[in-house]
Design a binder for these strands. Structure first.
Lengths: 355, 355
DNA sequence: TTTTAGCACTCCCACCTGCCGAGTGCTAAC
DNA sequence: GTTAGCACTCGGCAGGTGGGAGTGCTAAAA
């Protein structure tokens, strides 16, 4: 038994893994990410330029396994990183790669100014990320509730129907169909639009308070029926900030990874991405970490317990707007994916800024 | 050799397959669709209530194979329908199933009036179809170019930017960001919007002719710069009618079918659905058959040569608007899928009508 | 002439077997 | 603390086998 070693190792706090162990763990993660195969001691001794023999490396690997950073798929098959191993790698060992210039070029070209609709640019972003990272991509569009409003207009469709159109500071347009219980003239609608814009413009729906609503009710008293519908609608948008439209890209990439050759696993993931409200919330709700890495069971959804998800926030006019995410196996190339995501998020913000 | 038989059979024109052969072909298709297994003569003799012995059925099957309606995966494995077999089945043998009442109920509930945005209702439709048919679904949203316009407004975002908003007869809202090279006042923008609405309202962009454009140029001469941008934009929309936004649903369903357990096949399909301009066109371009069934290599895209795609048109206010499609293996339950698609298309039209 | 029973034949598939290579843990020597 | 040596374990693969399903053909029956 490796008691003399293991006892010591267990006392380590994770962040204090000894330099050599860190080196070895990092090499194992990167080798495994690159090849998909379990990593054996011989190969590792060759890769880690420390002049160590396989036997020594084996001892270190045994320690790392005992501390929970590695696991063996079966006896004598080499080691693979455990979820904890990936976590330690991501937190302490990973060195984010630099995004090569030609990739930046692709991003720039792809998010050109000639794209003129938010829908198109979000879809394009999803596809772009899919191509650049080789992982499946989910992108949350900006929500009406979280955005600063510039205008609110009610535009007639016919005498029974109209659309409520909200233009945000980023130039995104949100619209909702509303019924006109009593027909209103163009002038009346324009007047209502003006009042709505005057009182709601410059703030986000999520921040609209009682007093503003009261002001609206007073100013638009003659149009109580319509106002009721409109306010309820806007209120819903303000209260449910976590319901963005999700754009998918590179779905096929999911299947490219050996981990998802079992169709059942892949199906679970795809269902979750399509349906799960938790995931939608996770991507649509303003929240702290600019870059969030969830590994395996850290994910909010069970179906993703074999996946990692990296998401980064993007902004519109400096305000939080949504998250871009990629989903892949836990054996993910974190060091490359993170900077690519960040670069795309930046360019997307740029697109909104100079829309 | 079965010469005496085969010579005669070859002379049949497809539509004139003898009654018994039709019965057998139909049984084979339906049995194979249900089980996924090749169909053998013994089973078939039991299923087709003709009191025929397996040996007789074998002879008929040999004829059908020779005429190209069946094929054998390998010697002594039973028969499966060929692409031609499915085609004949779809054209002459299939009896569309009736949509059960509770399914209709699900459709009704799902496409309720409380859904207020076109984006949401299209996405919902895609998901719904995915659930109801167990096939992957692609849905083309209505395009700006093909829709009858009700209003065109230019709404300011800030003094350098604005959005062009087009409201269609179905209540769909399309928007594009535009730069204001010279700042314009709200009044000016409103005036421009009025002129645009007056001259373009009531017709589809695709139908706008030279004279109307000339009229615009005259009426809005002072705003040449802006008008140039706007007209180019509207012109593009009118000229490129086949570029709808595609909504996917039930992607996981693709993997549920044994035919796509090979991840490479599934990947090809997913890439095609995401990227192929041909497919986008196929679904976004007004075109004849209300129900279109493409089997195997009949598909416009190579990647779908192992798939069948059923698409149906839907309308908005009676005008052609887009297609709903499902994609699955050629071994598809055509008889059930077609009526479900039709029912959903009808309800979708209903949603737009009473939006 | 059409239908049927019988039969030999073909092919796939699931199972078993033994072998090989990769990689481990342990021990004893350095 | 490090290393070489060695016995051991396990998965994967090639090759062989038996069983089952289904066919085509032939000759007899209807």
């Amino acid at each position: 038994m490796a008691n003399s070693r293991s006892v010591r190792v267990v006392n380590f706090s994770p962040a204090e893994l000894d330099e050599r162990k860190r080196l070895i763990l990092r090499a194992i993660v990167e080798e495994h990410v690159a090849t998909g195969q379990p990593v054996g001691s011989r190969l590792l001794a060759r890769v880690v330029a420390l002049g160590l023999s396989p036997a020594t490396v084996r001892n270190e690997m045994a320690d790392l396994e005992e501390s929970g950073y590695l696991e063996s798929p079966h006896h004598s098959a080499g080691r693979i990183p455990s979820q904890l191993g990936y976590r330690f790698y991501v937190d302490h060992l990973m060195q984010p790669a630099q995004v090569p210039f030609d990739l930046l070029e692709v991003i720039r070209e792809s998010l050109e100014l000639k794209t003129r609709t938010v829908e198109a640019v979000m879809q394009q972003t999803a596809h772009l990320l899919g191509r650049l990272t080789n992982y499946m991509t989910v992108v949350a569009g900006p929500t009406a509730g979280a955005s600063v409003l510039r205008r609110i207009d009610i535009l007639p469709v016919d005498d029974r129907r109209a659309v409520l159109v909200a233009v945000t500071g980023g130039g995104a347009v949100h619209d909702w169909a509303i019924d006109l219980s009593t027909p209103l003239s163009d002038e009346e609608l324009r007047y209502i639009s003006e009042v709505l814009t005057r009182l709601l413009g410059g703030r986000a729906l999520a921040d609209v308070g009682r007093t503003v609503l009261q002001g609206l009710e007073d100013a638009l008293a003659p149009y109580r029926d319509l106002l009721h519908v409109v306010l309820e609608l806007l209120h819903d948008q303000g209260q449910a900030p976590g319901e963005p439209h999700l754009y998918q890209g590179g779905v096929a990439n999911l299947l490219a990874h050996q981990e998802f050759h079992d169709p059942r696993l892949a199906m679970d993931v795809l269902w979750a991405v399509e349906q799960s409200p938790e995931l939608r919330q996770e991507l649509g709700q303003a929240g702290e970490p600019l870059v969030r890495i969830r590994i395996g069971t850290e994910n909010v959804v069970d179906a993703l317990s074999h996946c990692s998800m990296i998401s980064v926030s993007y902004t519109v006019n400096g305000e939080w707007a949504g998250r871009l995410a990629i989903i892949g196996p836990t054996r993910m190339d974190y060091a490359h994916a993170v900077p690519v995501l960040q670069a795309v998020a930046e360019h997307l913000a740029g697109w909104f800024g100079r829309i």
